[in-house]
Each structure stands twice: as structure tokens, then as C-alpha cells.
Design a protein around this nucleic acid. Sequence first.
DNA 1: TATGAATGAGGCTTCATTCAT
DNA 2: GATGAATGAAGCCTCATTCAT
Lengths: 200, 200, 200, 200
Amino acid sequence: MAEKISLRKRKKFQARQTILTAAAQQFEVHGFAATSIAGIMQAAGLGVGTFYNYFSSKEEVLLTLAKNLREEVEEKISAADEVNRSSPELLERCCVCTAKLIDENRFILPLFLSASEHSDKPEQIPQSLSPGFRELFEEIILRGQKRGEFRDDVPANIISEMIHSIYQTTAFSKLEISFQENICLKVKILLDGIREKKFL
Amino acid sequence: MAEKISLRKRKKFQARQTILTAAAQQFEVHGFAATSIAGIMQAAGLGVGTFYNYFSSKEEVLLTLAKNLREEVEEKISAADEVNRSSPELLERCCVCTAKLIDENRFILPLFLSASEHSDKPEQIPQSLSPGFRELFEEIILRGQKRGEFRDDVPANIISEMIHSIYQTTAFSKLEISFQENICLKVKILLDGIREKKFL
Amino acid sequence: MAEKISLRKRKKFQARQTILTAAAQQFEVHGFAATSIAGIMQAAGLGVGTFYNYFSSKEEVLLTLAKNLREEVEEKISAADEVNRSSPELLERCCVCTAKLIDENRFILPLFLSASEHSDKPEQIPQSLSPGFRELFEEIILRGQKRGEFRDDVPANIISEMIHSIYQTTAFSKLEISFQENICLKVKILLDGIREKKFL
Amino acid sequence: MAEKISLRKRKKFQARQTILTAAAQQFEVHGFAATSIAGIMQAAGLGVGTFYNYFSSKEEVLLTLAKNLREEVEEKISAADEVNRSSPELLERCCVCTAKLIDENRFILPLFLSASEHSDKPEQIPQSLSPGFRELFEEIILRGQKRGEFRDDVPANIISEMIHSIYQTTAFSKLEISFQENICLKVKILLDGIREKKFL
DNA sequence: TATGAATGAGGCTTCATTCAT
DNA sequence: GATGAATGAAGCCTCATTCAT
């Protein structure tokens, strides 16, 4: 009986996963606005009605995809934080590994970021993704500022917003350079820009 | 007769203006996707059909709004360029006055920038706005690199993309600081980050 | 004064004519349903509103075009009738010269005939064209039947309807033969089919 | 499970049928152009959106109706051809039984024939119906010409076009005679007109 | 009389959502 | 839980028609 239930749960989980994957692919190909629920479910090889057993809207799917990504990022960052490093070093590492993850799920971040502008229901797409990133970065910056490793004439939240903006736009970049390299260069500039001058 | 025609043309121009303004306001309030043509025209106090006497789609309206803004920005930047200044100084000034203009038309830039990525008719929203900005900045940066005022281990187009990203995201910022101050702080970081080290 | 009026009238007549010609051309190019009043007036180089000074609907324009054609045909047929001929000869001549006229205004007949099917206001397109033709032919046939030149086991109106049908479909023919030759062949068959057998 | 599916499929088929019937009726009453999809679906007692589950345009509906009719006609004609007959006899029989079928679906043929010429989307209404008829008749005529039963100074395709025209116009006839009788009389004339003279 | 901008009814089409199976 | 046909609201767009100039 217990097995039966767990089997059922696994199956249910599977369908959910299938939908998420199909949605991700459709979003990537057609963009958020141009993707219909019918399209997702066709790509998923499931009936339209099934969608509503798992999600209540396209927005929720996107949110879920984004949350998954965020969780992965958080995990990686936490791992990076465990070793004892200087704040600039830590920040750089975090930026690099975040870049790697976003690169692997490239479409999600930009989609999410722009979805709020392009959804019919913008209220359903809260600022719940960004904080995940931003707060993590902000914490590192704050610590660095306390330790005197980063300049403190610019608030930490501004700096983390700036990091955020780098990811966002770079994901759309048309320049002939890889996403990760592009990020690295920008992070280098930023790090040089926020390093406390007396350390130079 | 000539007056008659000019009167009519003036009226026609006015109607166009009315629609643009109403559209801008609706875009700002509801976002691009959630704004319907009927909504725009209702806000404009005109019949739905009238829209099509002036524009052929919502995208075209957005494009027009954006083009108008870009032209203003270009003009200001050209003016700033005329005086002889150091590249960092020039860049800062341009950033500041661009910020001022964008601030006055805040909703347009982000809308445009994201619309180009995620409209149903992306082909109708070309990259015609951004270049206007980016190329201007890129030129200044290139000049500064040649003069040895800016670091040249990071390509100019990456840097101008970074500036671009600052405007884009800051326009969405939820932080409790004015748009222009926010931009100023970020530009300060960026300038410090790209200044040639030997000058320090 | 009289001249002024006549000048005005001539002008008015001219505008009307311009519209008719433009409409004919547009109908020919785009078909009846796909032609808009705006399109006609643009082709005519006149303002949209002007249309309503002369006609009250697209249907009326078509009707006018058709009526003009019919009048021409009637005239020719009357002329042909004046000389004394046998009925078959007369009928053949009439058919031939009708074919010639229709050929010169090819688009009108088929347009008219099908417009009744494709207009939103079929009630406005009466059977007022066909009678013009049909009655003329019917008269000739009736006379021929009375004289014993044509078989009379088939009613004259059926025969004239058959002639009518020949024009109608031949105007649409995709066969690689000229309209007039095509008509001639069919008329030959018809004449052989309706000739009183005792004359053979 | 299999039954479930078949039940649903049966229902789906029924809905399709309902729409076809309703469309046919609406076309007959209001004409093709004046019939709206909303009108069809209201007549069908179904929601507007449902239409698009089955057809993609009014044109497609018409095409389907016409194809159905053509198939029926072809079937009948093939059957008539199996017995050994003289060409004139065969042709007459075919004409008669075609007339019967068209009579039962009177509105379809003319609609189709004219729609193909004057729809907004003429490309969607190919010459796929007429050939069905015309080619069948043409074959019979050709055979008759080879056998010396029909005159051969008029090409077979002209003659079959003439038969075609008879059906087309007679379907619109306002004469006070039944469709089938009307056709019969005209076919009699045509047959007399194309019979090889030496047989008389 | 000529104009053409304004109008809104009306058609088309999409699609999220429901619900009977 | 899975299905997919049915639904109708809602958006888009066209165009005949009006009317102030």
C-alpha cells in the first residue's frame, strides 16, 4: 500500500516534471507570451486538461522553473561560502558559478525577468526570483564592506542590483563572446570598481 | 484652402499625439502585453477604428515612442560631446543626462528593451533603439581606450553593454532611491572599474 | 449661366465616370468582394466621401456597369435585327456580336453573375441584367419557333437560359481558346441542337 | 477504454456533421459571403470557438461540402458506365443522374463554382471540384467521338464545359420548371447538337 | 461638391478554462 | 488522474458610412 502510494506520487511527480520540461522548451523556442498551454501540453504529450492538475497558470510554471533555478544557485553559493575566502574572491566565485548555472538554463532568467512585463497578469509574477539572487550577493557585499574590503560609499543593495543587471542583460547579449566569458569580464570591472581604494 | 488643409493636418497630428500619450500611459500602468488597443483608444477618448488611421499595431506605437526618446538622447549627447573633456568626464556627463531623459520617460526604455525580446511579433521591434545608445557610448569608450584613459583589456562593446544593462535594470529598480541617483552610483562604480590603473 | 450649369454637370459626369472606370479596374484585379470603396476611390484619385455623392453602394456601381453593357448589347442586337434574316442566322449573329461586346468588358458579366452570390447584400443585385439579354434572345427564338425554323418541343425560355449559361461559364473558361471562338463553337452546337429536324 | 474513445470520436464526428449541415443551410439561405461563422455555429447550436476545432475557415467548409458531393457523383457515374451503352445514351444517363444528385444538394454546386472564382481567399478553393465532373464527361465524349457517335469538329473539352455550364446556371434558374426537367431538356438539345450528322 | 478623419459594428480568431467521460 | 471537445470572452482588424470643414 505504501508502495502503491509512493508509486502514484512518483507518477504524479513525473507528469509534473514532463510539463515543466516541455514548458521550458516551448518558452525557449517561442517566448513566454507566444507559448500557449495547449502548446506546452502537446509538447509534453499530455492532454490539455492535465495541465490544471499540476499548475493553475502559465505564470506559475515559469515561477516554478525560476524557483528551481534559484534553489540550485543558492546551493552552489552556499557551498562556495564554506571555505574561508576574502570577500572579493568569494564574490567572484559566486558570480562565476551563478553564470555557469544560468548558462545551462539560459532562457529562464531572461524569460522570468521580462515575463513580468509581458504577462497579462503581471501581478502573478512577483519579485520572488531576484531576491533569491540579490540577497545572497548583497550579504557577501555587506560582509566585505564591514571587513573594509569593499568601498562603502555605495550601498550594498545598489551593488547587488548592478550584478543582477549584468546577468539579465548579458543573457540577451548579441556580442560574439560566450555568456560566461562576457560575465567574467563585467564582473572584473565591477570588482575593480568596488574594491576599497586603500587596498590598491 | 491651404489653411483648411493645414487645420486638418494639425488636428490629425494632434490625434496622433493623443494616441501616443494615451498609449504611453496605458503601457506604464498595465504593461505592454496587458494593454489592448481598445484600452489605448478609450484612454485617448477616440474610437477603436481611429487607431488604425495612425498605426498598424501596438508594436509600432512602442517603436515610435522609443524612437522619439532615442532622438532626444542623441541630441543631448551630441551637445555634451562638443565641449572638450576627458573621456571619463564625458562618459559620466552622458550617462547623467541620458539618465535624466530616461527618467522623464521612464517606462519607455524598459518596455522597449524587453518588448524587443518577447513580443508576439518580435520582427516588428528591431534593435533600432539600443544601437542609438550603445553606439554612442561605445564610441566614447573607444576613444578613451585609445587615449589610454580607459583600460583596454576589456572590449569597448562589453563595457557599453554594461552601461546599457545599468539603465535597463535600474528603470525597474524597487530600491528606495531615485532613478538618477541610482544610476549615478552605478556609473561611479563602473568608471572606477574601467579607469586605467596607472592613472591612480 | 447655362454654360456654367452644363460645365458643372459635365464635371459631375466626369467624376462619376472616373469612379466607374476605377471600380471596373479594381473589380477586375481584386474581385468584387475584395474591393473596398476606399480602394476604388484611391484608384480614382478622389476622396472616399465623394463616392457617396454618386453611388450608395458597391452593388450599385456594379449594377451600373452591367446596365451600361446591357444597353450596348441591346443596341447592337436591334441593329442586327433590322435586316431580314432567317432566325438561326439572326440568332447566330446576335450571339457573335454579344460575345464580342462581352469580350471587351469581360470582367463585368462574370462579376455581376457571381456578385449576387458574394455580396453581403444579395437582395441589391437583382436579376436585372440577365433579362436584358435573355429576353432579347427569347424573342428571336420564339419567332423562329413560330416560323418553324426552331424545334418547339423545348420552351424558348429554356433555350435562352441555355444561351445565357454559355456566356456565363465561358467567361470563366480556363481552356486555351479565345472567348469568342469558344462561344462560336458552343453556339454552333446549340443551333444544330435546336434546328427543326425537317429542315435537315 | 476503447469504447470510451470511440464514443468520443463518434461525438466528434457528429459535431462535424452538425456544423456541415448548418453551414450548408446557412449558405443556401444567405449566400456564401453573407454567412458568418458565428451564424453557422448558432444554427448548429454550438459555440463559436468550436468551429475551429473542425475547420479553419468558411472556405474549407464549402470545400468539404463540395468534395462530398463530387464523390457521390463520381460513384454514380462509375456505376452507370459499367453497363455497355452507346455514348449518347451513356452521356444522357450520366447527365440525368448527376442532375438528380445536384438537385438533392442544389446549393452546393453553384456556391462552389462561383466561390472558386470570387472568394477573398481564392487560393483556398482550388479547381478540385469541377474537374471531377468535367473530366468524367469529357472522357465519355472523347470515346463517343472516337467511335464516330459524336461530331468531332468541336473539341471534347468545349462540349464538357458546355455541359458544366448547363448545370451551373440551371441551378440558379428562376423558371417554373423543375431542375431535373430543365436539365433534361437542355441535355436533349445538346445531344442533338453534338450527334454525328451521318447517323441522322 | 469634395474631402478624409472618425466611427463602431461586425467579422475573425485564439486560448485559458471547464467538465463529462 | 487523464482526457480533449466545448466554450465564450476578449482581442484584433476592416470597412462602409457619416459629417464637419
